[in-house]
């Protein structure tokens, strides 16, 4: 019961903080839209080529924005060493990790939900009845990325040049998640059968579970001084 209260308290605090400052969501949102605009110059707008690369662009935008948000979220927790204050509380490290992962998924997810319709319009994508599946893919990809990102942002925040360190660590390691997310999204948007998409989804779920388990075990060592 106490654990649940603590879990909810941390999550509530993170959301309240963001509601007041809006700095993370705003930064991520503007950034992901900027990425989309830049890519519009790379490919001919409306061309078939653009439509086939749209899933890739989508994920590049989300991942770059997510990286930005993760980095800010942890840096903010350190302005007055609040992270230390949290660690001094009688709270289990794994609970703290889980709460942080969920919080990060919520932040990045919110940005995705707002950006997605804009991209669908910009790239003239046909989602049709595939909405629920698309949302599931978004969630699974984001969950894996946020899990690894939560532990790496705790590391990078304690290094010099923290803004540089996070993507350098995060991107190569999350390649499998990014690949699986892009592939399943592009199959979905190309109107392929669920049977084609399913192996990639399964892979994505497998990655999520594996990364969560490993990061869950290692988090304690990252926050300990």
């Amino acid at each position: 019961m106490q654990t649940l209260t603590q879990f909810y308290t941390i999550l509530h605090k993170d959301l309240l903080q963001e509601l007041r400052s809006k700095e993370i969501i705003t930064a991520m949102l503007v950034f992901s839209l900027t990425v989309v605009v830049i890519f519009n110059f790379v490919f001919d707008p409306g061309s078939a080529e653009m439509r086939t690369t749209a899933p890739g662009i989508l994920w590049v935008a989300f991942i770059f924005a997510g990286n930005l948000g993760l980095s800010r979220a942890f840096a903010r927790e350190q302005e007055n060493s609040m992270m230390q204050g949290l660690l001094l509380c009688p709270v289990d490290r794994s609970l703290l990790f889980t709460a942080k992962v969920i919080g990060n998924i919520l932040f990045i997810g919110l940005v995705e939900i707002i950006t997605l319709p804009v991209m669908i319009i910009f790239f003239d994508l046909a989602v049709g009845r595939a909405w629920p599946l698309l949302l599931a893919i978004l969630f699974l990809g984001t969950a894996g990325f946020a899990t690894v990102g939560t532990i790496f942002s705790a590391i990078s925040a304690n290094t010099r040049s923290r803004e540089v360190m996070l993507p350098i660590m995060l991107f190569p390691v999350t390649v499998p998640i990014i690949l699986a997310a892009i592939k399943s999204t592009s199959y979905l948007l190309a109107g392929r059968e669920t049977a084609d998409i399913w192996p990639w989804l399964r892979l994505l779920i497998g990655f999520d579970v594996l990364y969560f388990f490993v990061c869950f075990l290692l988090y304690e060592y990252v926050v300990e001084e």
Partner: peptide, 28 residues
């Protein structure tokens, strides 16, 4: 244990009361 350092551990975007309530709930 209670700890006070030269760092306050306080959330600047939260009010004084909200800060106390946050930590209070963490300590039950």
């Amino acid at each position: 244990i209670g700890v006070v350092s030269h760092q306050t551990f306080l959330y600047e975007d939260l009010s004084a009361e909200e800060n106390l309530h946050f930590y209070g709930r963490m300590y039950s």
